[in-house]
Design a protein around this nucleic acid. Structure first.
Lengths: 337, 337
DNA sequence: TATCCATTTGCAAACGATTGCAAAAAAGAA
DNA sequence: TTCTTTTTTGCAATCGTTTGCAAATGGATA
């Protein structure tokens, strides 16, 4: 530790022969202060490497300028290789938050105990939450509302509640994928979804159904299966589909990771991709591109989603304005379909 | 916001008819307090959803129980799809830190201005740093030492400095990969490294050289190329190698992402993998497994590395004990070699 | 010179916890 | 009962900022 004995505003004040109020104002660029004084003090502070003590400021102004990201129910999995999606959205959030002058905290929220939210919010550690989960956690959301904690969630908002949200355009996503497969001349297009009771997945299914109907086709339950976004569940669901409908010639999968698993199963069954079975993924996460059979997929622009989550949460904190934004999706055609 | 007017220790004190010192001690489980009083107060606090205000505590005890992760020079890239490695180590760090009672902050350090470290440390926002970069940033490290900021870095420590570090066993990694290729009967084994002036890469090269020598072979400069860990640089370096040595029959690549790029180039050149050219990657990051041609690679156990970074930094903060740990690596044989 | 506005600055009271020290209460000894 | 000793609690100072209000400073004007 260096022997520096000047670290606080008081110290600077003494050096500059002004009061600490003046130093505080100088460092916060207050208009109350004469520019010359400001310059002089700022220079002094810089020279001595003094910056405002965050704890003290937070205590005084009663906010932390810190946002926590919470992933209820999936603490572990969120950071696992399984969840590339989580990692990528984290990037978008982090970058945007910092440009807004906020810090990002990786929160340790116990999903079984929504009260743990309070140890972050009630304690003044964070000013708000960004909730990113693969499915909607109602208990968690209700708890945040009860506590009056500002938050924003990734995903289709629950009916009957009014809170900030950002979500992809899942209906369009489902349509784009399915239309592409129809245009390719595919006759028996399967749907391999995420968790079946989630609104997000239901929207994608709706898009799938719409596209089929528009082409004069019908949905067939034996062409439908669900997984939970994991690689293993993708393997599993694809096997079921192939068993139920050996003659399927295309499949629309709700995540890239599951799509890659599906491709593996299809290839191992002796079929070719895309010649025999075309595959469309979802998200356009990095592995979609780097995969040796580059994935045709629905791009979510995950970093943008992260950015919007950050922006809208901060706006809500500052103005109380509740926003719902849906980000557009696009079809990215590569090799798998 | 709920109309709750009891949020501070003082409020609880009033309710419990004790002093706030007593409440503070109860909530911190101080041995100075009678167990019955403690129970009573803790119950009361829980009931009213009161938890200690972190800013106030931090101000008083002069520490934040928060660690920042810094990735100098790569702020953007660290969170990009390119850097799966960064994401995975982040997971290990986050999980361990939280179990040690620390929070993890995603820091916004400007690599061109090492002074920005001070806005985190000098301001009392964080207690220490975890530095994870693809190459050693000397200026940054010198600045931290100068400021007396506790930190730990991922990678081989610079000569002449004494600071905490965690690093993979790169020499062994290079040997294992090369030995495996030799055992496969390969005759012309190329080395596709990361940044050539980095100690980490030099160690891997040393392992490569050792293995060759032990087998009575020599290194050949036309079998050596370097990239910067990006996918694009992998494509590029592999093209150079193939041009310089069209007859090479194996390549040891310093990262999985570059290995996947290399495979792409090899396949496009009309050669088969692994029949014509065997490829070994490095890290065993998720895409190595999920790739449709699963990668043979050197597993780093990245999450463990993250865990060790967290543990040893906290130990250093608490005891001042400087540690250097190298984590073991292992060969994972899949399809590419 | 005296008076009156702007401008600039300083005073001092918060913010909500922790903790050394001393006082009070309880328990034990004589 | 009285005097120690031990256990339990409270007092009050402190951590480093911010900010409403008042005071001081400096021209400009009369």
């Amino acid at each position: 530790m260096s022997k520096k004995s000047i670290q606080t505003l008081d110290d600077i004040a003494r050096l500059a022969k002004v009061s600490k109020s003046t130093v505080s104002r100088a460092l916060n660029d207050s208009p109350l202060l004469n520019q010359k004084t400001k310059d002089r003090i700022q220079a002094l502070a810089k020279k001595h490497n003094v910056s405002i003590n965050v704890s003290a400021r937070n205590l005084r102004v009663r906010q932390s300028h810190t946002i926590a990201i919470v992933t209820p129910g999936l603490e572990k999995k969120f950071f696992s290789p399984e969840s590339l999606f989580g990692f990528e959205i984290l990037g978008g959030i982090g970058n945007e938050l910092r440009s807004l002058g906020y810090d990002l905290l990786i929160a340790n929220i116990d999903s079984t105990d929504p009260k743990s939210i309070n140890s972050y919010f009630g304690s003044g550690r964070v000013d708000g939450f960004i909730v990113v989960t693969p499915y909607t956690n109602q208990a968690m959301i209700e708890k945040m509302i009860e506590l009056g904690a500002p938050f924003i969630v990734w995903g289709v908002p629950m009916a009957g509640f009014d809170y900030c949200s950002v979500t992809g355009d899942n209906i369009t996503g489902g349509m784009l994928a399915t239309q592409h497969l129809i245009q390719l001349g595919r006759q028996r297009i399967a749907f391999l979804g995420g968790l079946s009771d989630d609104l997000t997945v239901q929207h994608r299914y709706q898009g799938y159904e719409n596209a089929l109907k528009a082409a004069g086709r019908r949905t067939l339950s034996k062409l439908i299966a669900y997984g939970d976004y994991s690689y293993a569940s993708g393997l599993d669901a694809m096997q079921r589909l192939l068993k139920q409908s050996p003659d399927l010639d295309a499949v629309f999968v709700n995540s890239d990771l599951m799509a890659i698993a599906a491709i593996k199963v299809i290839l191992e069954s002796g079929r070719r991709v895309p010649e025999d079975v075309a595959v469309v993924g979802y998200d356009d996460v990095s592995i979609a591109l780097y995969n040796n059979l580059p994935l045709t997929t629905i791009r979510q622009n995950v970093p943008l989603a992260g950015q919007l989550l950050a922006q809208n949460l901060i706006r809500y904190i500052k103005t109380g304005e509740v926003s719902h934004v849906t980000t557009s999706v696009e079809l990215v055609v590569r090799k798998s379909a």
